[in-house]
């Protein structure tokens, strides 16, 4: 029994990683990953919403009628997103400002509705909780990798705008501004995806 909980968590991180395997939730992935700090903030916000929404949807799965399940899921998700939005606004206003409209847009992140539909709507509460944590962490991992690449090349730093900021290349370094631009986001994610495809193929997971 213990093993299946662990499997629920690791599946979301590796085999069914939302960013690299399922290619879901691309809008925030591309938009907020200019700096590692923003990527991490977005990832954790999604972990919070996904865990709570999976928990509630799974507990209510016997009471939600089949025909109107999608609107029900959306209302539950929207409630948690509103809570997360208020918490961010109150405690980390700079992060909230940096993420902008992408915080309320967590509502329409396909990962959350996807997990509700594919998993939480059918499975017991504890397993759905593990699945929510796993998928959320998998998404966070994707965001961290992409924002690490974009911040190193586009800004020449790691963890800029935090207390742990590291300047990587000295003062004469001219950052590749392209990676901080929208075009660079698409290209960096495309290359990362190709890289993970190669790794998964090598590991014979496909």
């Amino acid at each position: 029994m213990k093993n299946s909980y662990l499997a629920d968590i690791t599946r979301g991180i590796f085999q069914e990683n939302p960013t690299f395997r399922l290619v879901l939730g691309m809008c925030p992935t591309l938009a907020v990953t200019v700096l590692l700090k923003n990527g991490l903030g977005m990832g954790l916000a999604v972990v919070a919403v996904l865990t709570c929404s999976n928990l509630v949807i799974s507990s209510l799965r016997r009471f939600i009628p089949e025909q109107v399940r999608i609107p029900c899921y959306i209302v539950i998700i929207a409630t948690f997103v509103t809570i997360v939005e208020m918490v961010l606004q109150a405690f980390v206003p700079t992060l909230y400002a940096a993420l902008g409209v992408f915080v309320p847009l967590i509502v329409v992140n396909c990962i959350i509705l996807g997990r509700a539909e594919a998993f939480a709507g059918k499975q017991p509460v504890l397993r759905s909780l593990c699945d929510g944590i796993g998928s959320g962490l998998g998404f966070t991992l994707g965001l961290l990798l992409l924002s690490l690449v974009r911040e190193i090349f586009g800004n020449g730093t790691i963890l800029a705008e935090t207390n742990y900021a590291v300047q990587l290349f000295g003062l004469n370094f001219e950052p590749m501004r392209l990676f901080a631009q929208p075009a660079g986001a698409f290209i960096a994610l495309g290359l990362l995806l190709a890289l993970t495809n190669m790794i998964f193929k090598r590991l014979q997971i496909d």
């Binding site: 290619v23 392209l178 631009q181 929208p182 075009a183 660079g184 986001a185 698409f186 290209i187 994610l189 495309g190 290359l191 995806l193 190709a194 890289l195 495809n197 190669m198 193929k201």
Partner: peptide, 22 residues
């Protein structure tokens, strides 16, 4: 090339398109 097939090449194409729109 095999690893780029599917979404990867689509994203890179979108990147170049985005570059043009810049």
């Amino acid at each position: 090339p095999a690893p780029l097939r599917g979404t990867a090449i689509t994203l890179i194409t979108a990147g170049i398109l985005s570059l043009a729109f810049m």
